[in-house]
């Protein structure tokens, strides 16, 4: 088996008395769509935050491309998230005062790109997610499903290696959720990005290549066990 792109081993994380993770093992292979399932409160989001370097686990290691995220400084992890990762959350992640196009172009601009080329790239991504006509609207003026598609475009615009999606369809109805999942997985597969997809809905998880289950902060990853 090839070396995984991103692997967390024996991750522990507590919030005060709450043990959100108690020894989780996960491996994400390049380009795969990995569903993270489990009942609510089981530690899915915490696991995702740890893997993405948003939260530093109390113990354990997270290896990404030969480096350990746990050992990196805040600034280094920030930079890594900016360049190598993309994020889609349940809702409300778009900056309300920027237009959809500017929202999508933002990661590129933060990476130092000039406005014109950044917005041209952003427009291409909006078109790929079938919301090309929403570029000049503000997030407050578009529907939830459209907003999530804009968010997916923003997550993918900087050519990330991994996209982290935490309940990306949680606030959508089935049809819109379906559409967003299709566009997300298609686009990610097209771009060769791996997706870590946190969801408790089996129908959403069915868009994955593989699933793991988090229960009481522990993970059963059949791959790793093998």
């Amino acid at each position: 088996m090839t070396e995984p792109l991103l692997a967390g081993r024996d991750l522990h994380k507590s919030f005060g008395p709450t043990e959100a993770l108690r020894g989780a093992d996960v491996a994400v292979r390049a380009g795969e769509v990995l569903a993270v399932m489990g009942p609510s409160g089981s530690g899915k989001s915490t696991l995702l935050h740890c893997l993405a370097g948003i939260v530093r686990p109390d113990s354990g290691s997270i290896r990404y491309q030969g480096r350990d995220l746990v050992e990196m400084s805040d600034g280094e992890r920030s930079a890594l998230r900016r360049t190598d990762f993309g994020f889609v959350f349940q809702f409300g992640q778009l900056v309300p005062e920027l237009t959809c196009l500017e929202n999508v172009a933002l990661p590129l601009r933060l990476g130092g790109a000039k406005r014109k080329p950044a917005e041209a790239r952003a427009r291409q991504w909006l078109e790929r997610l079938e919301v090309g006509d929403l570029g000049d609207r503000r997030p407050g003026d578009v529907s939830g499903g459209q907003g999530q598609r804009v968010a997916v475009a923003r997550a993918l615009v900087s050519d990330p290696k991994v996209v982290f999606a935490d309940e990306p369809t949680g606030a959508l109805d089935s049809l819109n959720g379906e559409k967003v999942m299709r566009l997300l997985t298609d686009a990610a597969r097209g771009a060769g990005a791996a997706v870590v997809l946190v969801t408790h809905e089996p129908r959403v998880a069915a868009h994955s290549d593989r699933e793991i289950v988090v229960r009481d902060g522990r993970v059963k990853d059949l791959e790793l066990a093998a």
Partner: peptide
């Protein structure tokens, strides 16, 4: 249950 879930999900993936 996990084995069953795997099997179910495999079918669901196929259907999807």
């Amino acid at each position: 249950l996990d084995t069953q879930r795997s099997a179910h999900l495999a079918v669901m993936r196929d259907l999807t």
